[in-house]
Simulated scan of single mutants.
Amino acid sequence: MPLLDDAGAIRDLLSRTRTIAVVGASTDPGRPSHGISLYLARAGYRVIPVNPTLMGRSLAGEPFRASLAAIQEPVDIVDVFRRPDAVPALVEEAVAAGAPALWLQLGVGHPDAVRRAVAAGLAVVAERCISVDHRRLMG
């Protein structure tokens, strides 16, 4: 799959998506991952929060998972809110989990990891905000 950077391809990905794993999700209302997770849930997506430090808590009605491997059902997009240096390992987790798409939020770029994800067959959206694109393309 390619690096998706045009409106039509991104709209198509968002319209096919039902479940989004938000890696780096937070229960802190001041964190972008918190607000965006809630926005995506209100938009009708199932949001599965991933953060090993928040086990036992929930967000958008879903319990936190420790890792992508801990999610027992298919995920359509892995949405990443982590530092760029964490992205290569997350790409490997996404590939191992069979995720079809990876979304790297603004400031989460890692060109080598993006190349690895694309080479592994994932559709990749990089350096874009999923809620901004959703509002613009699906609203």
Rank of each mutant, 00 (worst) to 15 (best):
P2M: 14
P2F: 11
L4K: 04
L4G: 05
L4P: 03
D5F: 12
D6T: 15
A9L: 13
A9E: 14
A9K: 12
I10D: 01
I10C: 07
D12R: 01
L14G: 05
S15G: 04
R16W: 06
R18A: 11
T19R: 13
T19W: 10
I20C: 03
I20V: 11
I20N: 01
A21T: 10
G24Q: 01
A25E: 08
S26D: 11
S26N: 13
S26Y: 10
T27Y: 09
T27D: 05
T27P: 05
T27M: 07
D28I: 07
P29W: 04
S33P: 13
H34T: 09
H34A: 09
H34P: 10
H34Q: 12
I36R: 15
L38E: 11
Y39A: 04
A41C: 12
R42D: 13
R42F: 14
A43M: 06
A43F: 03
Y45F: 12
I48G: 01
P49Y: 01
V50W: 01
N51S: 02
R57H: 15
S58I: 10
S58T: 14
L59V: 01
L59Q: 02
L59I: 00
G61Q: 07
G61E: 11
E62M: 13
F64G: 02
R65G: 05
R65F: 09
A69D: 01
Q72P: 05
E73M: 10
D76N: 04
V80F: 06
F81T: 08
R83P: 05
R83K: 14
P84V: 00
A86F: 07
P88S: 11
L90V: 02
L90Y: 00
L90T: 02
A94N: 04
G98I: 02
G98F: 03
P100L: 05
W103K: 00
L104I: 03
V108M: 06
H110A: 15
H110N: 15
D112R: 14
A113H: 06
V114A: 02
R115E: 12
A117H: 03
V118F: 00
G121V: 05
L122M: 12
L122C: 08
A123Q: 08
V124I: 11
V125L: 07
A126Q: 06
A126C: 10
E127T: 07
R128I: 12
C129N: 11
S131T: 12
H134R: 05
H134D: 08
H134M: 08
R136F: 12
